[in-house]
């Protein structure tokens, strides 16, 4: 089941985030070449980059949380007995879940604010509120991964997080 969940995150939000990053790379290259050789840059490239950045950061967050890849101190690990470590890890996951869910709620309020004033981007006049709602949704998903971890027998990424480590 855990493997399935990992795959699911990898091929949904993970895929989304990675395609967004790839797109920023191409967008920059095309924008720069266009300006240099054709005297014309991509209209609104800056704004598109900003929206894609949101997808990169928050899209990858559920995967990072699920795999326990956040930067964590482990200097005291040697002094803590295993049974306590287990409980501690679950409590930490519950706390993280609560914090990320709260941040998600905050982004809903931010989105409501943008909605209220009808804020848009400067050039393409894209509405900003959906971007904040997207952040909120992905933060809720991140919170959910922590809650699931808290009840798993052996959650993934036990012990120190691994930053490398390819999937599957």
């Amino acid at each position: 089941m855990q493997k399935t969940l990992d795959r699911l995150l990898y091929w949904s939000t993970g895929l989304m985030a990675s395609m967004a990053l790839f797109a920023i790379m191409w967008l920059t290259l095309i924008d720069v070449s266009g300006r240099k050789f054709l005297s014309n840059s991509v209209p609104g490239a800056l704004e598109i980059t900003e929206i894609l950045m949101v997808i990169v950061i928050f899209g990858a967050l559920p995967l990072v949380s699920w795999r326990n890849e956040h930067v964590t101190f482990d200097s005291f690990d040697a002094f803590i007995p295993d049974w306590l470590k287990n409980i501690q890890a679950r409590l930490v996951d519950l706390l993280c879940g609560a914090v990320f869910a709260f941040l998600g709620y905050l982004m809903v309020t931010r989105g409501d604010r943008f909605q209220e004033y009808g804020d848009t981007t400067a050039y393409l006049l894209l509405p900003v509120a959906p971007v904040a709602y997207l952040m909120a949704a992905l933060l809720f998903l991140t919170a959910a991964t922590h809650f699931v971890r808290a009840f798993l027998k052996r959650p993934p990424g036990h012990g120190p997080a691994y930053i490398d480590g390819s999937v599957s």
């Binding site: 920023i24 790379m25 929206i51 950045m53 309020t109 931010r110 900003v128 971007v131 952040m135």
Partner: peptide, 25 residues
């Protein structure tokens, strides 16, 4: 609450900070 949500939005929705993922990539 307002400050926190603003920081999250401003940092995530930030053109210049795109250097970070791109240099990592």
């Amino acid at each position: 609450m307002a400050s926190t949500s603003q920081v999250i939005f401003e940092t995530g929705f930030h053109y210049v900070l795109s250097v970070i993922p791109l240099f990592v990539l």
